[in-house]
């Protein structure tokens, strides 16, 4: 399955959340590959704690591969190369977890037929080896998004592959509007996809939203706020919910809400069970939300057109 992680803007927790999803699925025994298509600012190597990842990818990362400068993009086995102390011992029963990093100097480029062929060949090769391919796409209607949108259209090479889009956004007015625009706007995924040969209802049935860094007003984090603040925040939350529903990204289309997590505010990293249970630095709710989200990727009742 191809999981395409898109976001309206930067700073939505797209990279860090999708890396956590990849990690969760591999803990469950799935063989997982993470492709960093965040052209210009690849961050996955940092999230997986691979300090030399960006450096090693220079000239042989995904951009170089797509542009034909290298025959085979660099692969980094996360379990064996990570410096994250809790990850070094690969848990029994876990699947493979491999990162294909992007080159730092890659930047954006025009989508050509040649790029698309190379992408299709790469994905077909990887999907024999991995049951999940996570693709972290640059923010907005980027070239990376267009490239994947064309390649996954029914008559292109990846049309037969099951693919699911996750649109990440933060829980603010601007982000909600921008996320709706990215999915359904006149320049959005569904419109652009239809022009590229996608069936609009099928495509929109394969798009779900992930709300990131959502403040949960009932959590202890907010227990110190004054009554006036509490009431105001409640109203905001309510107003946002109405706004989202009005723009077509209401609860029915939300795959998960990831609560505001202090650890992720400080550091983009994988949240491990050790962080939650032994060290007590990350919140159980976050860990659980990531786990649920990872599971829902393959639960069909969460997907499809309503």
């Amino acid at each position: 399955m191809l999981v395409l992680a898109a976001s309206d803007k930067g700073g939505t927790g797209r990279s860090v959340t999708s890396a956590n999803l990849a990690y969760q699925r591999s803990l469950d025994g799935d063989d997982v590959c993470f492709l960093d298509f965040d052209f210009g600012s690849p961050t996955a190597a940092a999230v997986f704690d691979l300090p030399d990842g960006v450096h090693r990818a220079e000239g042989c990362g995904l951009h170089s591969y797509l542009q034909g400068r290298t025959g085979e993009p660099l692969r980094i086995d996360v379990w064996s190369r990570t410096e994250h102390p809790a990850l070094r011992d690969r848990p029994a029963g876990s699947g493979r977890l491999v990162l294909l990093p992007g080159d730092r100097t890659g930047g954006e480029f025009l989508t050509t037929e040649e790029n698309r062929h190379r992408l299709v060949d790469l994905v077909l090769r990887l999907q024999r080896e991995f049951s999940f391919l996570f693709v972290d796409l640059s923010a907005g209607r980027s070239y990376a998004v267009d490239l994947l949108l064309t390649a996954t259209s029914p008559h292109a090479g990846l049309g037969r592959l099951e693919n699911r889009w996750l649109v990440f956004h933060r829980w603010t007015r601007q982000h909600v509007m921008a996320a709706a625009e990215l999915a359904y706007g006149s320049q959005g995924l569904v419109h652009a996809g239809t022009a590229m040969g996608h069936q609009p209802d099928v495509l929109s049935g394969s798009i779900r939203f992930v709300r990131a860094a959502v403040p949960d007003l009932e959590s202890p984090l907010w227990s110190q706020v004054s009554p006036a603040q509490y009431v105001w925040m409640r109203q905001c939350d309510q107003a946002l919910e109405e706004l989202a529903a009005g723009r077509g990204i209401g609860k029915a289309r939300v795959l998960a809400s990831i609560p505001l997590e202090p650890v992720l505010q400080w550091q983009e990293r994988l949240i491990t069970d050790e962080d939650v249970y032994d060290r007590g630095i990350a919140r159980n709710e976050t860990w659980q939300a990531m786990k649920d989200l990872a599971q829902r990727l393959t639960i069909d009742t969460f997907w499809g057109q309503w």
Binding site: D31, L124, R125, Q127, R128, R160, E162
Partner: peptide, 11 residues
């Protein structure tokens, strides 16, 4: 080819 192999295997 339906591109959904029954098991993942490395080339």
């Amino acid at each position: 080819l339906d591109l959904s192999p029954p098991l993942t295997t490395a080339d």
